[in-house]
């Protein structure tokens, strides 16, 4: 399918200024409308003719959904951009893997338009923000009319391009718990050029108690139909003395747990091969940071 360079079909465009208005707009067009955050994914899909929403509810005029609030952890408004995240010293210090993921989001133009909520709701297995947020144990809050629900991000993804989000539902907030003391994190990504989607990405969060790995989470992107937490590998390290051979064993287990594919960006073989390397390096880096 060829990008037509134009938005080839007619649609209605509404731009609410408040969250309430946005929900009202959506309710007024049952089954026909779609929310748009930064538009960096949706507009491309529309130009390719893959989606044809009759109504677009643009969210960019709702300032109330752009925020970073420290409140027993971190609350991030769904419309917060990657640019805002990479410029937050607090995130850099306390949620390093998330900061590194925001840094790795292709170009400055995309970072300025693209939002955290949009990135997650698009449901791509390569979404840069998903691995670190899952590793930090984030939850997402979604609302639909006056109903709201909060689900762990880990369970939010439902397949390639699919999430739990229903069409009328809007993700409004991402909640990231306060990391425990002595926690370190790291994010690594391989692309073909700097401005690229991930071939493989990895986020690791480790809680350390002297030589012991009290807890760890390992989450990979672009190696399965959705972001993948490799729990068996985590088990190898949890509660153990953090040692090279265990790190190797865990990394090897990751490369057995992942289910990558061949596509235009890389091959299944290579993705398996480097998953192990990235996990090992990310584990070591996160461990060093956990002091």
């Amino acid at each position: 399918m060829v990008n037509s360079h134009i938005l080839p079909h007619e649609f209605e465009f509404v731009e609410p200024h408040t969250l309430e208005e946005a929900l009202t707009c959506m309710a007024a067009y049952p089954g026909k409308a779609q929310f748009m955050a930064g538009g960096t994914d949706l507009l491309v899909q529309m130009k390719m003719g893959r989606v044809r929403p009759e109504v677009i509810v643009g969210l960019s005029k709702i300032p109330a959904l752009r925020y970073l609030i420290l409140d027993q952890g971190l609350r991030i408004g769904a419309l917060t951009t990657f640019r805002q995240i990479e410029r937050s010293e607090l995130i850099q210090r306390r949620y390093t893997a998330l900061y590194e993921a925001a840094m790795a989001v292709t170009s400055i133009q995309i970072k300025t338009m693209g939002t955290l909520g949009g990135n997650l709701c698009h449901g791509s297995p390569a979404a840069d923000s998903a691995p670190p947020l899952i590793a930090f144990g984030a939850e997402v809050k979604m609302i639909n009319g006056d109903r709201e629900r909060v689900v762990p991000l880990e369970t939010f993804f439902a397949g390639a391009g699919q999430t739990l989000l229903t069409q009328e539902e809007l993700m409004v907030e991402i909640r990231v718990p306060e990391p425990r003391a002595n926690t370190g994190s790291a994010f690594m990504k391989l692309g073909r050029v700097s401005a690229d989607l991930a071939k493989v990405s990895v986020a690791v969060v480790i809680e350390r108690e002297q030589d012991i790995c009290r807890d760890c989470k390992i989450v990979l992107g672009a190696v399965a139909e959705m972001p993948l937490r490799t729990k068996e590998a985590e088990l190898i390290l949890r509660g153990k003395i953090f040692k090279e051979d265990l790190v190797e064993e865990a990394s090897l287990r990751v490369s057995e747990e992942v289910r990558p594919i061949d596509d235009s960006r890389s091959t299944s073989w290579y993705r398996k091969e480097v998953s192990r390397i990235l996990v090992r390096d990310a584990l070591n880096l996160a461990w060093e940071r956990a002091v």
Binding site: S107, R192, V193, S194, A195, D196, L197, S264, R265
Partner: peptide
């Protein structure tokens, strides 16, 4: 997206 050019970052 598939045909990859170096950008200023590279």
């Amino acid at each position: 997206s598939e045909y990859l050019l170096p950008t200023s970052m590279d």
